[in-house]
């Protein structure tokens, strides 16, 4: 087994375990921390796929900024593990388990796993397509179609930021 597949399986097991723990754990802070572990594992997958820039952005934006804000809010509200959040006697759990089993059976019976495309030859992604330079050049190249959506998205985010400030601002 190559080092790549060893790290893939470790990351895969950890990420699946952490995402299950995120749903299962009753404590919101623990859920959030498990989600952070999942994000870090996803960043590890990006590195395995030679997408270094994406991995760094994943850690900085999701694990470093968004989840810290989540934790901040959870800790500020100091939810702990309130009883009200733990639903008793609701149908949610059995229905969820039943639907999950149904879904697994559906996938297996449809043989979707067997019909997945197999890797042929060497992977087409080279070491240089995930670098900052390559992403920047393809993102801002006017001959590529990505420049316009990128700028539109940034304007959308700017509008959202201004909107948040306007909403939160005190009336003068």
């Amino acid at each position: 087994m190559s080092g790549e597949s060893v790290s893939f399986w470790i990351l895969a097991l950890v990420s699946v375990f952490a995402s299950i723990m995120m749903i299962v754990s009753k404590n919101p802070v623990r859920s959030a921390l498990n989600l952070v572990i999942t994000f870090l594992c996803v960043a590890g997958f990006y590195i395995l796929l030679s997408a270094q820039f994406l991995a760094a952005v994943q850690i900085i934006v999701y694990a470093g900024a968004i989840m810290v804000l989540f934790l901040f809010v959870i800790m500020l509200l100091n939810l702990g593990a309130p009883e009200a959040l733990i639903e008793k006697g609701s149908l949610q759990k059995p229905v969820a388990v039943g639907l999950g089993i149904f879904f697994v059976v559906l996938i297996i019976s449809s043989q979707a796993i067997l019909s997945l495309p197999q890797a042929v030859g060497r992977p087409s992604v080279t070491q240089y397509q995930g670098t900052v330079e390559a992403i920047g050049l393809s993102l801002f190249d006017p001959r590529q179609p990505w420049l316009f959506p990128f700028e539109i998205t940034s304007i959308l985010l700017l509008v959202a930021v201004i909107g948040a400030i306007v909403m939160a601002k005190r009336k003068v």
Partner: peptide
Amino acid sequence: VNIGILYILAMSSLQVYGVVM
């Protein structure tokens, strides 16, 4: 690595978890 400074920023943004936890 190609992402040198981003790596340092990522690690320093993870430092907050030690403190928060």
